[in-house]
Write a protein that binds this DNA or RNA. Structure first.
Lengths: 212, 212
DNA sequence: CAACGCTTGACAAAAAAATCACAAAGATGA
DNA sequence: TCATCTTTGTGATTTTTTTGTCAAGCGTTG
């Protein structure tokens, strides 16, 4: 296993995974890179090359078996593994994420929700009671927590991130507009929703100009 | 204006914009590509090349004037322009987005929220009353709507998207896990939150293996 | 005001990513 | 069974993106 796979490929995998799930749902058993490429709007060549990074799942003259391919990509992404997950920050975004059913299907088990606001503590979201931040340390010493989803205000993001990192979290999903960088070797995914919106604005502006 | 700017560059602009806002906040007047590169964790060369796509904002021996650069990037992204925006789907995610104050600062004015659920209609989010989907068409004929944020369930996403496209929306910000593709020339940004989470899972798995 | 140091903008080089093209192998059908 | 058709996997090629380099220009200092 010498060759390392580029992030560009990895970031496409969830998309393949989604499309394959769609195919399974409508009971399509096999798919060629060509047909998949048409559905996804990328080149067949790219699909073949991407999938080949992980081994030859396809068969000449036949294509790919949808179920096998789905399972294999799932394995690569780690869907078979369960990640114990907590949410810190039970505001609107925390709420929305806590209620997002898809996460469980993808291997992420929500086991705790924390907030600093006493008015929120005690409320139940999606079957889980919101705990006060004071309880975080104790909770994390009694439970293995793999991932912390941070939906706290910008001004406290780095403090909270440091804390969960020290307490042994393996990954952080950061929803604050502030980029996170930690000394610990914790994997971080920054989301930055509004960046996407800004790009949307740019593209609209550009299209309006081009139409003239 | 012959040369076209690559998406790779565009997608970095909001990040520059954020960092510059941070600098302004702490009253830093000037910044060199070298120092900015250290803060952002990218190469100085890339920063200079990116910024140069839009014209020479910098000055030899001095660096970049933070405020000027901030304003210029804002202009490129279209922050000075206002986008009239509606949200369709007042569930948890729609709620979270409706309450996200940052949007207004970035040029996006929320002027309407719609939902199909009669129990939600009439409630007020962030000063705006949720209207029933039946009212959408009338609303869009009486108001210019630039952007529709779609936080509806997957099964109705394409129907709703088609509708707002026909009614003249210029951009769609799609939060459903389903990729959107329309015939109309509407600009679409798909979000796919859970893709990011899946990548986080992959990276954690990978790091665990490498540590062995 | 001259000399020095810093930093940009531009171009060149390198690296990474995407695409092309085709031999090889399995599927299909007569 | 055999010929034909389809489609993969892969090395070569092209394109895109990132990084490196340096002359030229500006600011700063004495």
């Amino acid at each position: 296993m010498g060759k390392k796979i580029s992030m560009a490929v990895i970031r496409r995998l969830p998309r393949y995974y989604r499309y394959l799930a769609d195919l399974l749902r409508v009971d399509i058993k096999r798919i060629s890179s060509k047909e998949l490429s048409e559905r996804m709007g990328i080149t067949a060549s790219q699909i073949r090359q991407d999938l080949n990074c992980f081994g030859g799942f396809g068969q000449q003259g036949y294509g790919y078996n949808v179920e096998t391919l789905y399972r294999e990509i799932g394995k690569i992404l780690g869907v078979e593994r369960r990640f114990k997950t907590i949410i810190i920050g039970a505001g609107n975004m925390g709420n929305a994420l806590a209620n997002y059913e898809n996460f469980r299907n993808r291997g992420f088990d929500l086991i705790g929700i924390f907030d600093i606001d006493p008015n929120r503590v005690g409320h139940i979201i999606n079957g889980i009671e919101i705990m006060h931040m004071d309880k975080l340390e104790g909770f994390m010493k009694n439970n293995v927590v793999d991932i912390a989803i941070l939906t706290v205000p910008s001004h406290s993001i780095s403090e909270v991130a440091e804390k969960v990192a020290e307490l042994g979290v393996k990954g952080i999903w950061n929803f604050s507009p502030q980029d996170l960088k930690l000394s610990h070797d914790v994997v971080i995914e920054n989301v930055h929703l509004s960046d996407g919106l800004a790009v949307l604005g740019y593209r609209i502006k550009e299209q309006e100009q081009n139409r003239v």
